[in-house]
Design a protein around this nucleic acid. Structure first.
Lengths: 163, 163
DNA sequence: GGCGAATACTTTAACCTTAAAACATCTACA
DNA sequence: TGTAGATGTTTTAAGGTTAAAGTATTCGCC
């Protein structure tokens, strides 16, 4: 959640036209994400006294009523194992999720939302959707669809040119 | 730097067409940012033994040879005052930046890059530009320009519909 | 001059984050 | 049946992050 703006420094060092425009595109993409993400964090805190990472954990679990292992959870939300350990501990503390040991493999436990967690998540997800909707209010449905398509291209380029 | 995916939960609760597509757009925007940002963090660490926030501080200072106050710096990179205090302390420790007291107002100090910091930043900025360029390799110059324009619309909508 | 409010910054407490090391358990195979 | 290596998870150390409280200094106004 940082906003790196090395643009003008890079301009001095004279890259190609493509690299300069790529940098501008990256900074614009990043600024949209950072601003909206900050907004979401703020509202999650103010209205639900929670954080975005906790919301993300609950969102992943909401999609899998049968539960997820710690490893599946960490892969799902692109977060390190150790980090998930801490988040899950805090969410259990709040009685929003619980774990259930597995018979076969004693290293593994399934993590699931509690009733309380399900109810809270539903409210949070609805609010989250409203916040995003409001932020994109000025974009027509057609613009949004077009933007979805072109961002798919961006994503594809990122995925196919790793590291 | 999280990836919130409340999509399917929200689908169940039935928002408008606009709100559903807005959510999809947000998740796509976010996934592009998160993936690329992780990549940049990894490479900054591997190749320069530094972090993205430190890079951001140095980038802001590189654009202002006359220096920035702590407050200007924190506003520039969208970061809390307290956070900047810690980052600046670590960068001073590494001899990459230095501070200079001001005559008029003893509460204020100007922060600037050292020679060593300038030299390092130039190398980092060039590498950063290459990484981004490589990630967007598959996008034509025309696509990038078009994307810049439509993201400007997105940004405008975000800015004009705050909180 | 002096004092209250405003301004600039730092400290603190709590949390998020990761990579790497440590730990626990399982699996395969001698 | 051990045991070596693979797999799943937690712990640890170091740092990034914020809001809120605290400190220092300046400014405006009497």
């Amino acid at each position: 959640m940082t906003l790196s703006t090395s643009q003008s420094g890079a301009e001095k060092s004279g890259g190609t036209a493509h690299s300069k425009d790529s940098l501008r595109l990256w900074l614009r993409l990043l600024s949209c994400s950072v601003i909206l993400e900050k907004r979401i964090r703020l509202r999650l805190k103010r209205e639900f006294s929670t954080t975005l990472p906790r919301f993300d954990v609950m969102a992943a679990l909401d999609r899998r009523p049968e539960g997820l292992t710690m490893g599946q959870l960490s892969r799902q939300i692109l977060m390190s194992n150790g980090n998930v350990t801490g988040l899950v501990a805090r969410l259990i503390e709040e009685d929003l999720i619980y774990t259930q040991a597995t018979e076969k493999d004693r290293r593994i436990q399934r993590v699931m939302l509690t009733r309380k967690g399900q109810a809270l998540f539903r409210r949070m997800a609805a609010a989250h959707e409203r916040w995003i909707d409001a932020s994109f209010r000025e974009l027509s449905d057609r613009e949004i669809t077009a933007q979805l398509g072109s961002l798919a291209r961006v994503r594809q380029s990122i995925d196919r040119n790793p590291i």
